[in-house]
Design a protein around this nucleic acid. Structure first.
Lengths: 333, 333
DNA sequence: AGCCTACTAGTTAGCGCTAACGTAAACTAA
DNA sequence: TTAGTTTACGTTAGCGCTAACTAGTAGGCT
């Protein structure tokens, strides 16, 4: 590896002091235009780039942020990560990606490691720690954006960013009702998930508004993937053969459910309507194309990162953002 | 944000010198067992974690690595990234994720930013820079694993990790031939892709071995996604209605091609067999399930990261690894 | 001339940590 | 005993950079 040039190297080559070069690099006043140009020339010639590590040590700004997700393989988080990275790139920030693999211990270790790396901010998706632990952890970072998690007590350096799950689920149910469907089931996600709770509420609200009875036999829980959806739908259709609509926790579950219906010879959408959540790319790949509650995930990632940047820079920003999902009607309902 | 404790804080609290605490933290000899335990107690009590920034400045080891991918949203790279992150976690390393978005300029900027961050190593997927530029860039990093790219001149601090594309494509063609298929088309990926070249060679070799003629009308190029595959397959079937098998550059293209076939009323696999490449999760989600050349992508990511770690630690390691893809026969061929 | 401002540059200290060396005490060997 | 070795710590310097202060010079004003 080539020895990288330091400020001192440039300073020596230019016959000036360290600080003069530093001022040029950081676009600060106090250097004559001639000298500035001369130094700038040397900088590009010698291929100098500031060592962010050293700079970070003195400024305590590392221009890097942490992104914690359960699993970057999940298209939901992959899209968000992409948005975060894109926005980070706009601001010349770097992103540490960490997976928790839904493991609370690993989640804590992820936080530790990011803290040790002295990140300027943190984007934390689907935090699973207790409210108390959450408080402790949030206090360790200069700025945090919480995705998919709420805060009882607002904190000035923490922003929350959530999808309006309640409304989304209600809209979906209303859409089913509008199609004349009566036995509307809900295949929900993990019980520890906040979104799951809120969507269940929305589902109930939708049924109530339509004067349909709540029936717990129509509600199921499953891991938020296609296998989970498949198994759960199979079980559901076994215990309630008269189901004519399934609202799924997310698109993966919806796809699994769709396959279960097809395996049982039920036509989608004629016999059974299916609505998913998130609108991941898969939604338009499968046949029939999935009707789903569209959320612009990449955009959410960008919003999160930009908000984080604003907080780091000291610009105030809203304590909580709620994203409205939009029903994209395709073929499955 | 709580002021984080430093070595000096611990030292003062323990009434010893900085170095004694440092030795304890780094598990180095030269501290009595009693004192070590006492300090360890203080460390956990005060919640001390070493500042990796400061440590990195003096040791020039940052315990972080860079991962450059074209697009982390692409399941291919998402899987790899997951493997990399998993293995990095094993070694307490952190991963900077950067997308190039297939943009050569952004690729160079990504390299710059990682260099400024002083990463210990780099995992670089599908490098698109010229051979000359590649040499320049590689020289900037202490250790590099190149995925999907080869090196003319081996470098001691660079490892390459490639899928045996040639053999994979040949195996696929042979499989088609074994099913009695005669008009075997190939929907290849971007022409700048090294994999695309090698797969084309393997495709040709497979045909030649089977005494089938090469026919450039059977070969198409497309963007490596479902839309690309759909359009390319549509065009292909229009100009060669007698095609009875399609080898696709990757699974996304294969899925697109499958949808095109279905749109044209061709039955897969009866009328047309389809084989993909990579075995992404989608391969088992769609119907009919995709026959594809399976590559354990997460495993590749792990191998890459572990090799990088070995190189950083000074353990010698192979200059090039070639991964054998394995044909997973499912329903589409 | 004397004083003030404005600009340009240099000097010093220190961010948190570790490598390398220094040192005092205890222990060993004949 | 005396010199040599080991153990257990402390001291110093410096990684590359920037904040904050200092200093020199030119120009303008009374």
């Amino acid at each position: 590896m080539k020895n990288r040039p330091t400020l001192a190297d440039i300073a020596e080559a230019a016959g000036v002091s360290l600080m003069t070069v530093s001022r040029v690099i950081n676009n600060k006043a106090g250097v004559s235009e001639d000298l500035r140009q001369e130094i700038l020339g040397l900088v590009t010639e010698m291929g100098y780039h500031p060592n962010q590590i050293a700079r970070g040590l003195v400024t305590s700004q590392t221009t890097s942020v942490g992104l914690i997700v359960p699993d970057n393989t999940n298209p939901f988080f992959a899209q968000i990560a992409r948005g975060v990275e894109d926005a980070a790139y706009e601001h010349a920030y770097s992103v540490f990606l960490v997976n928790t693999v839904e493991d609370p211990i690993r989640e804590l270790e992820a936080l530790d490691s990011l803290w040790q790396k002295d990140v300027d901010g943190l984007i934390w998706c689907s935090a699973r720690v207790s409210a108390e632990e959450l408080g402790v952890q949030l206090r360790r970072f200069p700025a945090v954006v919480l995705l998919n998690r709420e805060l009882e007590v607002p904190l000035s350096h923490v922003m929350t960013l959530n999808v309006h799950d309640y409304r989304g689920a209600r809209v979906a149910v209303t859409h089913f009702v509008g199609q004349g469907r009566q036995r509307i089931a809900f295949l929900n996600g993990p019980s520890h998930s906040l979104s799951a709770h809120r969507r269940l509420q929305g589902y109930h609200a939708g049924l109530t508004t339509a004067n349909l009875p709540l029936d717990s036999i129509l509600e199921g829980c499953c891991p938020p993937d296609t296998e989970g959806g498949y198994e759960a739908a199979l079980a559901l259709l076994k215990r309630c053969p008269d189901v004519d609509a399934i609202l799924a926790f997310n698109d993966l579950v919806a796809v699994g459910a769709m396959q279960a219906c097809q395996a049982l010879g039920r036509n989608v959408p004629k016999d059974i309507g299916i609505i998913g959540f998130d609108d991941i790319p898969l939604a338009t790949i499968i046949k029939p194309q999935l009707t789903t509650l569209h959320v612009n995930l990449m955009h959410i990632g960008k919003i999160a990162m930009r908000a984080l940047f604003d907080m780091v820079e000291g610009v105030t920003c809203p304590a909580a953002i709620l994203i409205e999902p939009e029903l994209f009607v395709r073929d499955s309902a």
